[in-house]
Design a protein around this nucleic acid. Structure first.
Lengths: 338, 338
DNA sequence: GTGAAAGCGCTAACAC
DNA sequence: GTGTTAGCGCTTTCAC
């Protein structure tokens, strides 16, 4: 907000009307070659930078999309933000990034800000299953797509992942390796997507007739050390466990660390499988067996949904895409020791 | 850009002037309790969301800062963006995030976009040492702070880190552990900050009278597998190496992976030290010895510098802050084997 | 093929 | 203590 050259200056200097200048910039009506050239040259000469805000005030389009994630320093969300930004900018949209810090109040205030900035749409990974604030946005005609999480009764379009199948396959994989005591480290507070994961795990056990000890533990947060603390407890509670599934890779990596600290090896003593397939998975030792999460496809679909909704607000809502997941077997899982 | 309630609607419904409404919203002049209440209630009732764009057009302040990073999925940059966003939003600023993908052309187009969005300031981790485009922003009176990188001749304020001391201490640490053949994995293309790191390493070797074999190798990119490839080559070239310093943690982790693949142990056969102290460092096995990078302080200082410059554009420029670094000794380094 | 001018939703100087 | 109104820099209708 510090520049001085305006469209008027260009118009005057080029000896044309502001309308003409506007039209050559936006290619929005025919302008003769002569004038076109003159205007372009003047723009160049004066280093003119159109003030898109002023335009947005009229057109009611800002070409920015809001993005709210719980925590951009989490590797999954970091990858997702990066990809959302990349595909957005390839379509000429900018991204306004907010971290909700897993806090609904902060999420609410992010939304406030984003609304007042008049973004053209919002992509959000919400923090709770609270749908009211999101539905209200929709009522206000703001296109929003919920990424990754599942909120029943929410009118927003969404792109999610087949969580159930992810953990189901992972568990079957473990069972096929003769594991019978398989632990599960869950998210601090259950959300539908994490319940799906838990159910996938349970279903697999059930199908294979494995007695359901309560081998499920909840961790306290989303960082590596929360995984450490969780496995610590689980190992104490259920010392016969030979394999664990973790809610995500971060938790899994924290768990591996602590397993090692107990003088146990992965996968020799305990097999570990993660979820998300964060880039690092193939570079830690042992390489982490995990459920691959299609990050690019998610980001792409989210942006596509948003643009689609902008262009045609009348499509029956909500539209939803469920992307498939697949297990990537690496080195952190192996046959159970006799 | 889809809402209909404007300040006029509020004014009419509350039976006051738009000026009064504006003033109660912005607390910018005294309004009697009665009117104040009436206005507030009306705002509530109509779910009015001020259009900050319209205001910005007048005030020439947008309350958004641009942030350009090379790649938000890199753990260091992810942490930095998150922190910049957090401190900005605590000061009522939003963040417009762009990834330059390590490409000057893209960086340029991000800047274009950011200028046209009239951000109040820009925080950038540039991709090259090219200073022209940055200096031009400054000439256009846009406050900008260069984060992390060093660009000589650049008029932007900056907050950086004492790179030299980081690698110097790390190398001394290794020498103190009796290592004499210490490799260094450098960044794909040298920049001043990476040269400082390289010099810290060299200076330490020189001071301790260690012959400078050319144990320096350059990796091809910034991902884990670039570290893998680099160490692969280095091991072939210099099989007597017992320790390596990596340009950053990501590279170090990739290297460890490959060292393991060669049947060698870290730190038993080869000690490894990283740079940045990304969160994961204390959770991989072995925990990574690394140079701690004060991420929060950087983000905080960058935003502070920006706001300072906005408030007082006349401060002699550039102002610069160099934050200290310190070595964190964990498990990936140990005495050299006889 | 081009220009004049109204108006997007605010802020803030000026008036009372 | 409150209201009127002129712009901020654009887009776009209407007119020629």
């Amino acid at each position: 907000m510090v520049f001085i050259v305006t469209i008027k200056d260009i118009a005057k200097q080029a000896g044309v009307s502001v309308a003409t200048v506007s039209h050559v910039i936006n290619k929005t009506r025919f302008v003769s070659d002569v004038l076109q050239e003159r205007v372009k040259k003047t723009i160049e000469d004066l280093d003119y930078q159109p003030n898109t805000m002023a335009g947005s005030l009229r057109t009611r389009k800002t070409k920015v999309v809001g993005l709210i994630v719980p925590d951009n320093s989490n590797p999954l969300f970091a990858a997702l933000s990066m990809l959302v930004e990349q595909v957005s900018s390839s379509l000429n949209y900018n991204v306004l990034l907010c971290n909700s810090s897993y806090d609904l109040k902060i999420e609410l205030s992010c939304i406030q800000l984003i609304r007042s900035k008049r973004v053209d749409g919002l992509i959000i990974i919400p923090t709770t299953t609270n749908k009211d604030h999101i539905n209200q946005l929709i009522e206000n005609k703001l296109p929003v797509v919920v990424l990754h999480h599942i909120i029943t009764g929410c009118k927003a379009d969404s792109v999610v992942v087949n969580n159930f199948k992810g953990t189901y396959e992972a568990t079957i994989h473990l069972i096929d390796l003769d594991h019978r005591h398989i632990g599960y480290i869950d998210r601090p507070v259950s959300l539908p997507h994490s319940l799906e994961r838990l159910n996938g795990y349970r279903k697999a056990l059930e199908e294979r007739g494995i007695r359901q000890d309560d081998n499920v533990i909840r961790c306290n947060g989303f960082n590596y050390n929360d995984g450490s603390e969780a496995i610590e407890k689980l190992l104490k509670l259920k010392p016969d466990i030979t394999a664990i599934l973790a809610f995500n890779d971060t938790i899994a990596m924290g768990a591996i660390r602590t397993i090692n600290d107990h003088g146990l090896g992965v996968p020799d003593d305990i097999s570990v499988v993660g979820f998300d397939d964060v880039e690092l998975c193939s570079f830690i030792t042992p390489r982490l067996t995990t459920v691959h999460f299609p990050k690019y496809k998610m980001a792409k679909s989210a942006v596509d949904f948003l643009l689609k909704r902008m262009e045609n607000p009348e499509i029956k809502r909500p539209i939803k895409k469920v992307l498939p997941l697949n297990l990537i077997i690496r080195e952190s899982t192996s046959k159970v020791k006799k």
